Amino acid sequence: MIKEMTEKSFFFGPTEISALRRFVPEHLKGCTTFEVLISSLWRCRTIALQPSPEKDMRLMFFVNSRGKFNPPISVGYYGNCVVLPCVVSKAEDLCNKPLGYALQLVMKAKASVTEEYVRSTMDLMVVKGRPHYKTDSTYIVTNLTRGGLNKANFGWGEAIYAGPPNDDRDIPGLFSMYLPSTMLEFLCSIRM
């Protein structure tokens, strides 16, 4: 299944985000654009892959944990300070329940990232190492809208587009990037 995937880029401007938000239930209206977008993409990707209804489908996304510590990480610290909470759902539920189902799972996972969660994740990685993902059921998304890629200038002007690298031998077909774009508001590159 992984070898049959193809990469596509989708541009999401205010009109597209507004259309997605119409499916958000009232009690979840405080969700971020990123949360509603990745919830929608996770559902759509799962539907497209047509997994067994009982298969556990996973969504992982990077969460900045710099502000989770007390005292906070020092200003000027340069290094990774992220964790990847994992959301799990049976494929049948993800495909058949409304968007609010997936969105609520994403928001709950994001809210669960506390100092204790980050420290526990660090301890686990020291003890167990860095485990490989189940590539047939995992979807990983990173939000790079504030990463400064749209301001990078390599001598020929500011960037108008960026995308994922083609070298994905370690985790083929399961990684997407949410990037700023001058063409429209945001770009999400996804492999389906």
Rank of each mutant, 00 (worst) to 15 (best):
S189T: 07
P51T: 12
R191E: 02
L149D: 11
A48N: 11
N150W: 01
P85D: 06
Y178C: 10
K90E: 04
T46D: 03
L144D: 00
C95G: 12
E4M: 03
H27Q: 05
L174Q: 07
V24M: 00
P165K: 15
M183P: 00
S40D: 09
P165M: 14
T138K: 03
C44P: 00
L49I: 00
D93F: 03
T142N: 12
K8Y: 14
S176Q: 14
P98G: 15
F34R: 11
L105N: 05
R22L: 13
K3Q: 11
I190Y: 14
W42V: 02
V118Q: 08
G157R: 06
Y78L: 14
T142F: 10
I160W: 13
M107K: 06
P164K: 09
T114C: 04
N70K: 13
A102D: 04
S137E: 04
L105M: 09
E115V: 06
F10M: 14
R66M: 12
R66A: 14
A48M: 08
F62S: 13
C95I: 09
F186P: 01
N70A: 07
N150F: 00
M57G: 15
L41Q: 12
F62Y: 04
S112F: 01
W156S: 10
M183F: 07
F12S: 03
D136T: 11
A102K: 03
M5P: 03
N143D: 15
E54L: 01
A102T: 00
I2A: 08
Y78I: 13
Y139A: 04
C44Q: 09
E92M: 00
S89Y: 09
D168A: 13
K97Y: 10
S18K: 12
P131I: 06
D167R: 04
L28H: 03
K110S: 12
S9I: 12
R45F: 01
E16C: 07
Y161I: 00
T182N: 11
I17P: 00
T182W: 03
L41S: 01
V113N: 02
F69Q: 14
T145Y: 03
M57F: 15
M107N: 06
M177F: 10
E116W: 02
K151N: 13
R66P: 14
G157T: 09
K90H: 08
N153P: 08
R22K: 14
P51F: 14
P71K: 05
V113Y: 01
N64Q: 04
A162K: 07
V126M: 07
I2C: 00
Q104K: 15
T142Y: 03
M122P: 04
